[in-house]
Design a protein around this nucleic acid. Structure first.
Length: 915
RNA sequence: GGGCGGAUAGCUCAGUGGCAGAGCGCCGCCUUUACACGGCGGACGUCGGGGGUUCGAUACCCUCUCCGCCUACCA
């Protein structure tokens, strides 16, 4: 089939994405082989799998893209890449699925009980694992270059148990009764990282008086009056002169039968704040808890686990905590103890899961000691074993790791890995790899399993090695641990990355990866966080396939957008999205610098890269249409004698250099920009245009050479761009007639630059040629001469080299400028422009708009004179001439003389125009 | 309160101790046989303010102002 014949005039993304969509579909299906026989250096680029059940989140799309680009690049460089779907985050998906199944069966999870629920969840997980493997197999067959290997450990819990037991035995995991953050809605404990804070909530600072046993009163302030029911102390500063007489005294609780000691606490109390007296509720406040420990105060819990007042609160029993607040205030007022209140701005801790206000509650939980694990993880980054890119994040990493607190790892959730702990009737705790039959401490056989599950990040933290078969000594583990790169978002640097570092070092002695590559967070085009409620969420699938406004609104409604959110959508995308294609989205995401923390995704920008895809498509269409049967790309550089051919090959080397450097150093934006610029501004704007006169009027030999270069550049460009925009490049690449390179596939090699092949002479000469053409076009535009009117040009060069170039390229110039070209001296009435030592005169005979021309030349002269003045001042500065590097001075001198010449010519032109 | 980052064209953002950049937008002209998802030409900047280092600062240092994010604290 003639390669260009069936190519539509505009690139249709659906054309190739139908075929290759699986590359990065919601299942993230892309993987390259890890042949056990292969001894080349291993490369693993892990990432958490996208949410299997839901829609593809834009953040995932972003990470998948970065990861996919790196995998493809390394693959093309000849490294093995292993993409491993995690088996863990899917836990949440599994829960969703099982809930859905139960609903269909008319059941709730409470009917089923936790154990059965978990069982079904894991069943589903196993099935989905099989399904993934099956799909992977199918894909592997269709993409013949890919031999796939997915490590899908069907029983990850074995590894999780192993880790838990070992850490327990080492004393790094322990059980303790502490104040923890409690989510009253979902009734589970939260880790510090799961607590979000809402800023500047208007609250009330409420003051009331505690009557003293010896008469008198002590006024305290609080934002949570209801907690006074759990007060077991009042703290004052030992040096506070106002309260010296209260040392060692007691207050009397006005609502419940309780003596309240007045304690001296210099650590907690700030005499300048409030009344200088602090009520202490050790069971419901982290500071009070610490102070309570110091003074051996009683810890009295007053809440039930669902956030109501418990049996110790007397008449308030059963009230919701917020209702109780009002009731307590009312009661205090009745007793005449209220002492005023004022507005108070505060930050409220809220649960990431349920959004309710977090309640500190005393509870027995499992904890993990972090400091001994954090130290080597800090060292690994300090000594460079692991590099965090962009480097800014290193500081944040240290800051967090050095201030790390013990991690509460137990959760009271309905899904997750069970904690391998059992209790006998004597409350002895047995931790074991296998389900035990008797207590390790008292031989009791009546064992009850711990009801709790592990925090999701506990098993996620083991991900780099459990997915490779650990604790068995597998070949995968040997080959792929440690991995080269981890690509992820900075928002889970602590949740996940830091914990993988700590766990990996602890269990395998080495950090799990050599580089941690952090991408920014994808936001909307205004830089605001995407939020379903706000309606500013972009679904990558909509961007790829297009969506009408109605579809967008419907989807937003389903996911809980507010009225305002829906309005925002209607206003921002009145026509919905056109189908930009996966390549355009990928290229857009890549074009953002990884240095920036935000990726403010705008559809306009995506459209720009969609246009680039179309440009590439049409350039290829043109190029393929120019080839004949004997033209093939061989992957090796063809010989070139014509200027344009030498030049484009040289520029290709230049682009490939930048592209490779960018991919190596995780500056994908540099790579994509360099190739974008090469394709559009060099290949399309100049080279393709300049091949036209050659291909239509050149000698047989010139035509043959040009075709060979054309196909070579075209082929190399597809491979160079392939990691970034795989679909379109694959589509085009398949149509390019090839030999040698054709045997493999587009991912078989990445084009490598060879700086030795740069051709400086051709690049220099091309600047003259383009200067001549640009000048001529500028003259035409300035004179408002329609493109179809042929003009007459006279060209002059400052030196022999330039004159020779002009002579050789005169027909090319004539074609590109729609002009007749002479090389003699200009005669008669002409307009003149000079650049790069080339002077172009355009005959004005028949065109006499001298006013306009005067204006233009005047403008140009002013600019030249301004530049010259700056330069002269600089060069007139003896200090500069003496101290600046010689080449800088020489360069400026050269430029000075160029400008001076230009000024002379412009002045002449102006005189001529005036005369 | 502590930490980290940012301030560059109308917008979103790169960049550099030696001539200030990209995409989009804007203004003209053009449907020329790869492409109007295009071509050609053009306008647009006290590189947040103030000091310092330097022959030279948008870049390095100090400081101020404003804006993000994280983290505490909040009786």
């Amino acid at each position: 089939m003639p390669p260009a014949a069936d190519m539509p005039k505009a690139y249709d993304p659906s054309l190739s994405e139908r075929k290759w969509y699986a590359y990065w579909d919601e299942h993230g299906f892309f993987g390259a082989s890890n042949d056990p026989e292969d001894t080349r250096p291993p490369y693993v680029i892990p990432m958490p799998p996208p949410n299997i059940t839901g829609t593809l989140h834009i953040g995932h799309a972003c990470r998948t893209t970065f990861e996919d680009v790196l995998i493809r690049y390394h693959r093309m460089k000849g490294f093995n890449a292993l993409w491993t779907p995690g088996t863990d985050h899917a836990g949440i998906s599994a829960q969703v699925v099982v809930e859905r199944q139960l609903k269909a069966e008319g059941l709730t999870r409470h009917d089923l009980g936790r154990a059965k629920f978990l069982e079904r969840m894991w069943d589903w997980r196993r099935q989905s694992g099989d399904r993934i493997l099956e799909q992977k197999r199918t894909l592997g067959a269709s993409a013949d270059w890919t031999r796939t290997k997915f490590t899908m450990d069907p029983d990850l819990s074995r590894a999780v148990r192993e880790v838990f037991v070992r850490l327990y035995e080492e004393g790094l995991i322990y059980r303790a009764t502490r104040l923890v953050n409690w989510d009253v809605a979902t009734q589970t404990v939260l880790s510090d990282l799961e607590v979000l804070t809402e800023e500047n909530v208007e609250g009330e600072m409420y003051e009331f008086a505690y009557p003293l046993e010896d008469g008198g009163e002590l006024v305290v302030a609080t934002t949570r009056p209801e907690t006074m029911l759990g007060d077991t102390g009042i703290a004052i500063h030992p040096d506070d002169p106002r309260y010296t007489h209260l040392h060692g005294k007691f207050a009397k609780h006005p609502l419940v039968e309780r003596r309240i000691p007045i304690v001296l606490d210099a650590e907690l109390v700030d005499v300048k704040l409030g009344t200088g007296a602090v009520k202490l509720t050790p069971a419901h406040d982290f500071n009070d808890f610490a102070s309570g420990k110091r003074h051996k105060l009683e810890e009295i819990s007053i809440f039930t686990l669902d956030g109501k007042m418990n049996e110790l609160t007397g008449e308030f029993r059963g009230l919701d905590r917020f209702v109780a607040r009002k009731a307590v205030k009312k009661k205090l007022a009745e007793l005449g103890l209220e002492r005023g209140s004022k507005k108070h701005l505060m930050t409220l801790p809220k649960s990431e899961r349920s959004g309710t206000v977090v309640e500190p509650i005393i509870s027995t939980q499992w904890f993990m000691k972090m400091e001994p694990l954090a130290k080597p993880a800090i060292a690994a980054v300090e000594n460079g074993d692991t590099v965090i890119l962009p480097e800014d994040w290193t500081k944040t990493y240290y800051h967090w790791m050095r201030n790390i607190q013990d991690w509460c790892i137990s959760r009271q959730l309905w899904w997750g890995h069970a904690i391998p702990a059992w209790y006998c009737e004597n409350e002895h705790c047995t931790v074991s790899r296998e389900d035990p039959t008797r207590c390790a401490h008292c031989d009791s056989t009546k064992l009850r399993a711990d009801d709790d599950v592990l925090d999701t990040w506990f098993s996620s933290g083991l991900w780099p090695f459990t997915t490779l078969g650990w604790p068995d000594k597998t070949l995968d583990l040997q080959k792929f641990y440690p991995a080269s790169d981890l690509e992820t978002g900075y928002d889970i640097l602590f949740f996940w990355v830091a914990r993988m570092m700590m766990m990996g070092i602890h269990f395998l002695g080495k950090p799990p990866f050599k580089r941690v590559l952090l991408a920014g967070m994808v936001t909307d085009e205004n830089g605001d966080k995407m939020s379903k409620v706000k309606g500013n969420v972009l679904d990558p699938l909509d961007i790829i396939h297009g969506a009408t406004l109605e579809q967008l609104l419907e989807k937003a409604k389903k996911s809980g957008a507010s009225e305002g959110g829906l309005k925002y959508i209607a206003k921002t995308y009145p026509e919905g999205f056109i189908a930009y294609g996966a390549d355009a989205l990928r290229y857009t995401l890549l074009s953002y610098s990884p240095q920036s923390r935000r990726i403010a995704l705008s559809t306009k920008r995506i459209e720009g890269y969609r246009n680039f895809c179309n440009k590439l498509w049409n350039a290829s269409r043109y190029a393929l249409g120019q080839l004949d049967d004997s033209t093939v790309a061989t992957g090796s550089r063809p010989a070139a004698s014509l200027l344009i051919n030498r030049w484009i090959l040289s520029r290709l080397e230049n682009a490939l250099t930048t592209a490779n450097q960018g991919l190596e150093s995780y500056r994908l934006d540099d790579s994509s920009l360099a190739l974008y610029h090469f394709v559009w501004n060099e290949l399309c704007d100049w080279y393709l245009e300049l091949t036209k006169p050659v291909l239509s009027g050149g000698s047989v030999e010139e035509v043959r050479e040009t075709r060979a270069v054309l196909v070579h550049v075209l082929e190399a460009v597809q491979r160079a761009l392939h990691p970034m925009i795989p679909f379109i490049t694959e589509e085009i690449w398949q149509r390019i007639p090839k030999r040698d390179v054709a045997e493999a596939c587009i991912v078989s090699s990445y084009p490598q630059p060879d700086q030795g092949l740069r051709d400086e002479a051709s690049e220099r000469e091309m600047t003259w040629l383009t200067a001549a053409i640009t000048s001529a076009r500028g003259l035409r535009a300035a004179k408002d001469i329609a493109p179809k009117i042929s003009i007459r040009l006279t060209l002059e060069g400052d030196d022999d080299a330039r004159r020779a170039l002009l002579k050789a390229q005169s027909s090319a110039i004539a074609t590109l400028c729609n002009a007749s070209v002479e090389l003699a001296h200009a005669q008669g009435d002409v307009a003149t422009a000079t650049a790069e030592g080339i002077t172009v005169h355009m005959s004005l005979e028949g065109l006499l708009d001298t006013e306009k021309e005067k204006e233009r030349v005047g403008r140009e002269l002013a600019k030249v004179e301004k530049d010259l003045a700056v330069l002269e001042k600089k060069l007139g500065n003896e200090s500069f001439v003496a101290r600046a590097p010689a080449d800088v001075v020489a360069k400026d001198r050269e430029r000075q003389s160029e400008l001076a010449t230009a000024r002379g010519k412009l002045k002449d032109a102006l005189t001529k125009l005036a005369g």
